[in-house]
Design a protein around this nucleic acid. Sequence first.
DNA 1: TGTGCATTGCTATTGCCAATAGCATTTTAT
DNA 2: ATAAAATGCTATTGGCAATAGCAATGCACA
Lengths: 144, 144
Amino acid sequence: MIDPLIALPGYVLNRAAAANLANLNQQLSKLGLRHSDASLLMLVASNAGLTQSDAGKMLDIQRANMVPLVSRLMKRDLILKEPVDGRSHGLFLTRKGKAFHKEAVAIINDLEARMLESVSEDLRPHLMPILGALWDFNMKKPAG
Amino acid sequence: MIDPLIALPGYVLNRAAAANLANLNQQLSKLGLRHSDASLLMLVASNAGLTQSDAGKMLDIQRANMVPLVSRLMKRDLILKEPVDGRSHGLFLTRKGKAFHKEAVAIINDLEARMLESVSEDLRPHLMPILGALWDFNMKKPAG
DNA sequence: TGTGCATTGCTATTGCCAATAGCATTTTAT
DNA sequence: ATAAAATGCTATTGGCAATAGCAATGCACA
């Protein structure tokens, strides 16, 4: 069987990312969290009071799609909202949210560390520069 | 604003892949194709007569999810099935499918080439080995 | 040779996530 | 004061992965 796809960086990038996401979600399911939950917890932990819109911009999630994400974490008493002005609300971690955040970070750091170690030591320093370059390129929507 | 996520290889991997997929799909929409369509066309082009199941295994798409994918391409007269035995069918490109395949490959190669060039020349040789290592690690479902 | 098991393709359903359009309210800019 | 932008939201759609289960077929082995 010939696989013409595995020679394509973009294809391998996507397969690697999909597999990584699956692993991450499997690990996070121990806490009943999804990767999107965990990323929001981490963002709020580092930026207490930031707006739902701002979080969406950083995570590249549209305003409309932030609604169910925030609602779910609020229902589970992991985050709370406080009015900033008449239309926007600041997000904060609850006590319980801080505990979950801590555990999520532990899980994520463990997976990230093991993934890093799977890359040979001489290539490891080039990992982030390369991924960063790929991200930059594709974020600029290079129409062609 | 502090972004604790951009230091995580897994997160950057996923953002890069998502952005890449969006670009690819945007380019392929010129042909009315999705990335999954294009990958199947490429696989069938290189392995005429392969089975729907085998294609699914190579693409990591489950049998059940191959059905709508194959059906769509059959309806558009890009691929056809021929019975191999009583239960499995071999997939082949039609004449029209070959033409679409050629155009899809051109689009994909162009995007891949431009993406590669966005990585500095000294890092470029390390790209595939690193992505391959990340893929391998995450594919082995490292439970923890 | 026949019996049990695996394979293939399929239906049907569920869940996650992205994308779009539109709305009411509030803030900001001119 | 008025126009424009921002914020949060509803509702809907589409793409794709995952699961369970089914009928038909092929295969291995006693």
